[in-house]
């Protein structure tokens, strides 16, 4: 970090300018997998944000203690611990979310956003800035999931926020609100949108829209420079000589 940004800027950059999903193209697996319903998308967003926030704080606090050589395994241990803590809490208090997210809940461990932020930001910045960065990135991730899932749920199931009751039950069991049903679409849902092809399609269109917006503001397009943002980049032989994954020719 050459220039010091203000705390406010660290927070807001994750929302739009450096949105982890639409701009940095990180965490694509959970984005596609859990965006079939708004409730599970929000649940996943909150869980990942909590992990990102906590792991950023701890990694930043320990950045001078962790030896350079073993930093990646150390980060993985720290992140995996927080994921497990969240997993246990979700199982105990929001069991409906646990069954909705299934295997994708423990898979937060390998969400590139989290390891990516640890390596790119928390390992180089102070605790407060890292905490704010984690929170901003997490909320950006949640917002992206929310957008994706809104489109997919409304078109694909004809509902909005269906199943939200089970999430809200954490605060109070008396909440009866359980989302809206969209007339017409509910009887004739375009099921393809909640299936895998719909996921890829909506994501593609979202990236195209965000590219269009970025272009208008004179920002570069979102590209999958897989390797530059890949948390394993530093230990990857592929880019040792400054190439991108895709450009490497294997004999």
């Amino acid at each position: 970090m050459a220039e010091k940004k203000s705390i406010g800027k660290e927070f807001t950059k994750g929302l739009i300018a450096e949105n982890p999903v639409f701009r940095l193209v990180l965490g694509t697996c959970p984005t596609l997998a859990v965006s079939t319903s708004v409730s599970s998308a929000i649940g996943m967003g909150i869980a990942a944000t909590a992990v990102l926030f906590c792991s950023n704080i701890v990694i930043s606090a320990l950045r001078k203690v962790i030896p350079q050589k073993v930093r990646i395994p150390a980060y993985i241990v720290i992140i995996a611990s927080f994921v497990t803590i969240i997993q246990l809490l979700v199982k105990a208090f929001v069991p409906a979310l646990d069954s909705a997210l299934g295997v994708y809940l423990p898979l937060i461990v390998v969400n590139c956003i989290i390891l990516g932020r640890a390596e790119a930001f928390a390992s180089k910045n102070a605790v407060l800035a890292s905490a704010v960065d984690g929170l901003g990135m997490g909320i950006g991730f949640t917002a992206a999931l929310f957008l994706m899932s809104t489109v997919r749920e409304i078109l694909g199931s004809g509902t909005f926020l269906s199943g939200i009751k089970d999430l809200l039950a954490v605060f109070s069991g008396d909440i009866q609100f359980n989302g809206f049903t969209i007339p017409f679409l509910n009887e004739n849902p375009l099921t393809i949108f909640v299936l895998a092809p719909g996921g890829f399609f909506v994501f593609g269109i979202m990236i195209a829209l965000s590219n269009k917006l970025a272009e208008r503001n004179g920002k570069p397009k979102a590209e999958l420079n897989g390797c530059a943002s890949c948390p394993m980049a530093s230990s990857c032989a592929l880019i040792a000589d400054g190439k991108k994954c895709e450009e490497v020719d294997v004999k």
Binding site: A196, F200, F201, G204, I207
Partner: peptide, 21 residues
């Protein structure tokens, strides 16, 4: 223009995925 690069890749992925359905 807006679809060049990543977006069209994802749309293509969508079609491949549809064939697997």
């Amino acid at each position: 223009k807006a679809l060049q690069g990543l977006p069209i890749t994802l749309v293509a992925a969508s079609l491949v995925s549809m064939s697997f359905l």
